[in-house]
Amino acid sequence: MSADTPASPDDDLDPEAVADLQARIDALETEVSDLRTEVDDGGSQKMVIIATKGTLDMAYPPLILASTAAAFGYDVTVFHTFWGLEILHEENSKNLQLSSVGNPNMPVPNAIAALPGMDRMTTRMMRTKIEDNDVASVEELIETSIASGVELQACQMTIDLLGYDEDDFYDGVTTGVGAASAFQDMVDADIQLLV
């Protein structure tokens, strides 16, 4: 470093450039503080579940996870489409069946499981087990979920496809929603599950 170096580097700075830089710093600081506020305000986390199955065993996971996440303070949406709609159908939800065929956990081989009446029998066995083990019914879980602020949505396209009416569903179920709103919810969500 030579002795000719100016004592103060400020001497070389164009006041206009300094002002520009200061303005840029101010703008960035405002932007950072806005982002901080946005992150803090959006404190509530989101979970979206897409429920596509309508058998008795597959009705439980989405409803249990949804109501539990709500207890953890999550904003939860469950979008029910195709056979997942049966879970929200007030009448059909009380009569969900197990499939005995193709389920290796069933106590009977497939050839016997395919006989008429077998699904009804295994479903009855399962329902008895559910009651004996103090496990809530599907209806109870739906009511609990809605009371906990879970948004249960019924896919409008599937409602039309299966010939259902909006009144067929539990009170509090949202109808008139489609894939776009489900997708939008998923984009914003911290957890997205397909069941």
């Binding site: 249990i64 109501s67 539990t68 709500a70 207890a71 953890f72 083990n133 103090d134 496990v135 809530a136 609990t144 009371a147 906990s148």
Partner: peptide, 14 residues
Amino acid sequence: TGQNCPMPVIKTKG
């Protein structure tokens, strides 16, 4: 009492 998962947590929150 007499209630299984997930009810205890959900009702606790309530």
